[in-house]
Write a protein that binds this DNA or RNA. Structure first.
Lengths: 223, 223
DNA sequence: ATTGGCTATGTGATATACCAAATATCGTAT
DNA sequence: ATACGATATTTGGTATATCACATAGCCAAT
């Protein structure tokens, strides 16, 4: 009897429309699908996702408190524009926090996770060779967060996600050049080596070097 | 003509009901007015604030994405319960980030801000003497955030606020003892001295010592 | 051609009705 | 008395109507 019960499917949890809309917009922001300054209206989001205004409005409101969207004092919502000062503060924190997550992750990596990380790096190299910028950015994200999540520090990872959320739109502006950077691959290789040796400080350094090179590129690109 | 225009009031901006509800609940959470495990329903919030369900629901949803409330898989919202592991991670990050904000703040303090900070400390001593725990917690918050905001790092301060949001409910559990701690006052005095001398490292140390003593207390209290 | 105002339209905010699912209540059968 | 099941109630989720305000476009008057 209990065997049968174990097998039964627990009735697929249909995620709420609000949650779905929230995740869709959030993902689009992180992946740089939106342009800074782009305007969003409740009705346009509702229409695009074929839902009513209530869940669309809730999703937008949630992103506003996270800083993923701005609520202009006038009546509309826009994708935030990042100025140089913002960029400096974001990268300061990214270097600090992502470095920290990487440090803790080194001790927790299993064989399986390391293998999937190596596969990710391989795919990233291939995507870059093909000039598939969208894919490069996506795989870069997977690479980094695979490491961060291995730290086991959920709160830390959540904060880092919030920083990527704010970064996303600038990638839209700049990613044709951003994804072309060659140093990234070398730093990722350093990271893989550090993980194999369970070298926390080495992993921290590799990740921080990766971020610093990205920062240098964006900083010079941003006028 | 332009003089007159300067003087005109820009028509006071009535904050939306959603925003108001959000701020009310958030403040209640940070100040420890809610008990961990306490249940919130959309209708009860709407009734308490005398608003309809829509803004109440939006306010709750926003706090859920911030981690200030939990959305139990079943249909209801609860004030999160913090376990020991959560507490450790929160304090790790608080010590890191609040220390950092304090460090940057030391260089930016003006005469005026220092005076108001000293006044805050004086009030805190008085409130503690009277055993007014609510007031002690409130003034302690003002003291800390006056420093953090002086750093000029808006994003950093926002992240720190998010950590206080998660801390709030445990204060409810424990604050009778928490607000009785005597070390806090000494560390605050250290902080004031460090600010006078524009000693960033000293200010960082003072704040971190304050947090560490609080952590030690909570950690031993939490079973 | 410029200025002023009127109108139409778009938009966020709120209230409310309704639904489905979860929970609570209560009665019945053994 | 206890366990089970049917019914009632609560509750979150969604859609929609309505309101107030902002913006844009247009027209007329000077």
């Amino acid at each position: 009897m209990s065997d049968l019960i174990e097998q039964l499917e627990p009735q697929r949890r249909v995620v709420s429309l609000t949650q779905h809309a929230y995740e869709q917009i959030r993902r689009a922001l992180i992946s740089g699908s939106f342009r800074p300054g782009q305007k969003l209206t409740v009705r346009s989001v509702a229409a695009a996702l074929d839902i009513s205004q209530t869940p669309a409005r809730e999703a937008i409101g949630r992103l506003v408190v996270e800083g993923g969207l701005d609520s202009t004092s006038t009546r509309s919502f826009v994708v935030p524009t990042i100025d140089r000062e913002d960029l400096e503060e974001i990268y300061d924190l990214r270097i600090l926090l992502e470095g920290r997550a990487a440090y803790f992750a080194a001790a927790h990596f299993g064989r399986h996770e390391l293998a999937s990380l190596a596969a990710c790096q391989k795919a990233l190299i291939a995507a870059r060779a093909e000039g598939d910028v969208k894919e490069v950015l996506k795989l870069n994200e997977v690479f980094h967060f695979t490491i961060y999540r291995a730290s086991g520090k959920q709160l830390l990872v959540a904060i880092i996600e919030g920083l990527w959320l704010r970064m996303g739109p600038v990638l839209n502006q700049l990613y044709p050049g951003f994804s072309d950077q060659t140093e990234t691959l070398a730093f990722h290789a350093d990271a893989l080596r550090a993980i194999e040796q369970q070298d926390g400080e080495g992993l921290r350094a590799a990740i921080q070097n990766d971020l610093k090179s990205g920062h240098a590129f964006l900083s010079s690109s941003l006028r």
